[in-house]
Design a protein around this nucleic acid. Sequence first.
DNA 1: TCAAAAGTGTTATGATTACACCCATGA
DNA 2: TCATGGGTGTAATCATAACACTTTTGA
Lengths: 239, 239
Amino acid sequence: MKKAIINDETGEVENTSVISSITIDCVIFGFQNAHLEVLLIKHAVGIRKGEWGLPGGWIKKEEGIDKAANRLLQELTGLENIFLEQLKAFGNPDRFPMGRIITIGYYALINREKYNVKAGFTASEAQWFKVSDTPNLIYDHDEILQYSLQQLQRRVRQAPIGFNLLPEKFTLLQLMKLYEAILGVEMDKPNFRRKFLRMKLLVDLNEKEKDVSHRAAKLYKFDNQVYKQLTKKGFNFEF
Amino acid sequence: MKKAIINDETGEVENTSVISSITIDCVIFGFQNAHLEVLLIKHAVGIRKGEWGLPGGWIKKEEGIDKAANRLLQELTGLENIFLEQLKAFGNPDRFPMGRIITIGYYALINREKYNVKAGFTASEAQWFKVSDTPNLIYDHDEILQYSLQQLQRRVRQAPIGFNLLPEKFTLLQLMKLYEAILGVEMDKPNFRRKFLRMKLLVDLNEKEKDVSHRAAKLYKFDNQVYKQLTKKGFNFEF
DNA sequence: TCAAAAGTGTTATGATTACACCCATGA
DNA sequence: TCATGGGTGTAATCATAACACTTTTGA
C-alpha cells in the first residue's frame, strides 16, 4: 500500500523496487440493498491523515500493470479472480501535490457476499460508501470515481459485466435493481423480465428464494459459457 | 519525437526534462476512398530502423498527458484542435525491450482533406496505411492499434465522433461508407438514410456535389450544437 | 385478509428489415 | 442509352412501453 513506500509529507519515494512516477488507483464497486457502493480507504498517516481516498499502490519494476492492480486488489480484499478492468491513465501535472505522479485507474466489481467473509482490512481503515453519498476524496480521486461510474454505465450496456456484482444465484428483481442502481433509471418489472429472459442468458436453477415474506421468486444464474456462444455478433444490454 | 531523446540502441534517456518511464503513442485514423486508414511512422535510426510504428513521444515534466498528446499530434500533422481521446495505458513489463517503459495510448480522428494541405513529415517518414493492410509494427504497437480499432467501433455507436473523419460537407452515402468501414458491415442505403435523417442531427446545406458522373447528391454537415441540445438523455448510433 | 413482491397478458406505437422501384446526370 | 449512384415507397416483422391484472406467500 502507498503508505509503506512513500513519505506522505515529503513525497519522497523510499523504495526503489517500484516505478516512482506511476501509481495504480482502484475503484472497487459493490452492490447491497439495491445500492451501488464503493470501497474507500482512510489515510492513516501523513498530512492527509483521516481523509478518504481510493485504494492504490505502486507498480513493481518487473510487474505488468494489470498484474499490479490484481495484486493490490488481492492484498486489500483477500479475493482472487475479481473482475477488473483498466479505466485509463490520469496525469494532470498538479494531481498529486508532492511531485509529478501519473496514476492508472482501474475499477473492480465484487460480490459483497464473498467479500464479507474475509476482508483484508479492518473496518476502521476500509469502508463501503454508497456512490451517491461519498465524502470528498483526496487528490483527483473524485474525478477518477466519477469517470469509473460513467465507464461502468457504458460497459454494462455492452457486456454482461454487472453479474460480477451479484451473488451467484439471484432473482430477476435483484438483477433489475442492479441495472437501476448503475444506470440511475427506473424500469418496468414485467418488461424487464421478458426482455432479459428473451436473451436466453440466464439459467433457471429451479430453485426459489427462502425466508421471504412474500411469494418466493425463482433463482437464476448467469452462464458465461452460454454468453460466449451467443455473442458472435455483439449483444445489446440497452434498457 | 522519440528518436531525439532516447538512444534507440541502449535505451538510455538523454533528456531529463521528461518522465523517463512513460511515453505516449498515438493511433491516427483517417478516411479516404471508403477505407479507414492509419498514419504510421518509419523509424529512421536505431536497431529498429526501417520498421513501422505508431507516432509517439515523451511527456514533459510539467505537462499534462492530454496536453502532451496534443502537442505530439500538432508537431506531426501541423493541425490543431484534432479529435483526440485516450485509449488506456499499456504496461506489459516486456513491451519495450530496452527498459521498463509504460505507454499511454491515444487515438485521433482527422479529416484527411485538411491534413494533405500541410503535413509535418515528409512522405518517406510518415505514410497512410489501410487498417486492413498494415505492416507488422514495432514493440506492442500492433496490440495498441488493435485495441484502438475496437475502441473506435465502440465509441462510434455511443457518440457522433465519426464526423471528425469526414470533410465538413459530405453526402449520406459517404457517411454510410464511413460507418461500414469502421464497423466492418454492409448496410442498406435507403434504411441508413432514413434512420440518420430521423435523428435530425444533419443540417441540409442546400448544396449538391459537383463534377460527379451521376446524379449529384445533397451535401450535409453535422451540427454539434444541435447534437448537444438533443443529447439530454443519451443517443444511439447502433446500426 | 392484507401487504408485498412474483409473474402473465394485452395493446398501441414505433423501429427495423428487406426489398422494389423511379430519378438525374455524365460518358 | 447505359451505368452509376441518388432518392422514395411499402409491407412484414419485431421490439418497446405502458399498464391492468392474477398468483403466491408470510405475517
